[in-house]
Design a protein around this nucleic acid. Structure first.
Lengths: 340, 340
DNA sequence: CTGAAAGCGCTTACAG
DNA sequence: CTGAAAGCGCTTACAG
């Protein structure tokens, strides 16, 4: 019943030297009886490792910013936790709060609790001293959904530009030409890249993507709508498509897909409630998370990461939110009616 | 530039003795320059506290079981994180994995990392050695959504029975009498209590809640539906109501609310996509989480908890998924047509 | 097979 | 105002 023996038993991997079955059983019994829980602090201090990874989202209320993406975040957590459990890692939610100066040291204390960090869907374009601290902490980092500036960082992200292009192309194929882009404040990186893809596709088809064709979810008025005479919308994410279809269309006096076709670019699962009745341009979040976790594990093990910069393509899922453009509204009535 | 001085500066709360501004500035500068991150392990070991709370959900893929409740989980995390950030606490996701025996010690190691535990939506009826370990760990615990067996435990939960009653009463008031209960495998506690409330209300109205009126989301067939001639459904949660309305109704050849009224009992926010077009019996998760966190903070500070067993009532939100029962289907045609 | 000892990085009374 | 020292609970070479 000595202290070193107890430790050896409770960590029960094969020790260099054997331990008598008798002692082992006794120790385990007592440990359970007294409800012994090993001190993570002691262990971590000794080993220099916590077996914990941190998840840093886009806001203190982790991955819960103003733009609603519940399905996405849930799916990402599902994937992350299943990887973590499999690898016997703990997961700490990083608050990502940083007000600099006075309490800086306490703000970043959470970084001292983890062996590696997943940065998820965080806007990397803005100046951000918390991200600065993350980079300076000298711990392995993998980015998900966003593209880090500095060249040697590992990341997994969807090909947003290709996604935007694909969404617009599908609408063009269906005979639409006045195709808008619906977005929302927040996520300038992701939404910006998807918008760039939309603009590329339109230009390639000889159509000028007017600035006034980019609409904001919060400020579409019937006036604006009437003026632009759009017959289709590429949506920067699924929430916007869902809101448009279920609420905004009615306030504009139009219906989907009869008067306007709608297609979001999204990483949410098709089973999410907000995916209901939508055609989609999608790539699932799960594989990105799995790949990212594999990268992080490699980095933590100081193994080489085979392909440190992974880009996942989007693909098209047909659905009832797209219909051929009607002759009256379409600039290319001929090709429109030949479709369908 | 000595080690104790550095520590004093970086923890920058007022020390019993003062520190020269010069030294202070120098230390802070160097710390930032070298990207110093304090070792959480060292600090925790010394202080015996981690300033971390653990969240234990219903499955390893934390709060992400087979029954889809994304909106709820997201809302709960939003509330929890905002409390945690305000109180400068870290949040660790507990995996809640326990296969007993061999690796028991490593399984519950995560409990050694936290000062207190929130148990969220976990089925407490089954034998569960992980929960056993949680109780034996001697750390403060607060339960959310479920009712712990042992009398001295703190919890915040909705009044499920009252919610079930309220949902059924509203349908009765609208002239329905053949009112079913739609549920799903999983969460026997919550769904069972809500179902008990539904049954109470029906009995009080002189209607026998037939066992065959309890339907499972996964196995409603047109045959079953036709046989029971239900005109309304109380749903054990919002996902079931959403699925029924958006998918299952069509396969049964009925429409909501013309042929069947639907009302879920839920803690999800009304803005969740799955709430679209539903009347609801609801109570928001946010206040329960805030109250629960306050309890946990009290327990950790060894302050008395004023009201350790909080029950939150449901209330009714009208919506387009309820319509008066039609004379043909209703057993109480008279009262039905006198409504509305 | 088992135990005594060192040391991980911190904080904080205590001594200068 | 600043520094030297003890000790939090572990793990692991090392000695019996």
């Amino acid at each position: 019943v000595s202290i070193s023996t107890a430790s050896r038993v409770l960590n029960n991997r094969e020790t260099p030297v054997a331990i008598s079955e008798d002692t082992r059983r006794k120790v385990v019994e007592v440990a359970r009886a007294v409800g012994y829980v090993p001190s993570a602090a002691g262990r971590a201090l000794r080993k220099g490792l916590t077996r914990t990874i941190g998840v840093l989202g886009n806001s203190p209320e982790i991955f819960l910013a103003s733009v609603r993406i519940e399905g996405l975040d849930t799916e990402m957590m599902r994937a992350l936790m299943s990887e973590a459990v499999r690898e016997h890692f703990h997961v700490l939610l990083l608050t990502g709060v940083s007000s600099g100066g006075a309490s800086y040291n306490t703000q970043i204390a959470e970084l001292g609790m983890v062996d590696g960090i997943i940065v998820y869907n965080r806007d990397l374009s803005a100046g951000d001293d918390y991200m600065e601290a993350v980079r300076n902490a000298g711990k392995p980092v993998v980015y998900l959904l966003e593209y880090p500036e500095h060249g040697d960082a590992c990341f997994c992200a969807p090909d947003d530009v290709q996604g935007g292009r694909l969404a617009a192309e599908k609408l063009l194929e269906t005979g639409h030409s006045r195709i808008g882009f619906l977005q929302q404040a927040g996520y300038p990186g992701i939404f910006g890249r998807r918008r760039a893809g939309w603009a590329q596709a339109l230009r390639k088809a000889g159509i000028v993507p007017e600035d006034t064709w980019t609409l904001d979810l919060g400020s579409i008025t019937p006036d604006v709508w009437k003026r632009e005479r759009l017959t289709a919308l590429v949506c920067a994410n699924q929430w916007q498509a869902h809101r448009f279809q279920t609420r905004i269309a009615a306030t504009l006096g139009v219906s989907v897909p009869k008067d306007v076709s709608v297609v979001p670019i999204t990483c949410e699962p098709a089973s999410a409630p907000s995916a209901h009745n939508l055609a989609r341009v999608s790539t699932p979040i799960g594989p990105m998370v799995s790949r990212g976790m594999a990268m992080l594990l490699n980095l933590m093990a100081e193994t080489a990461v085979a392909e440190p910069r992974c880009v996942f393509p989007f693909s098209f899922e047909p659905g009832p939110s797209i219909a051929p453009a009607r002759a009256a509204n379409s600039g290319k009535a001929g090709s429109a009616s030949s479709e369908q």
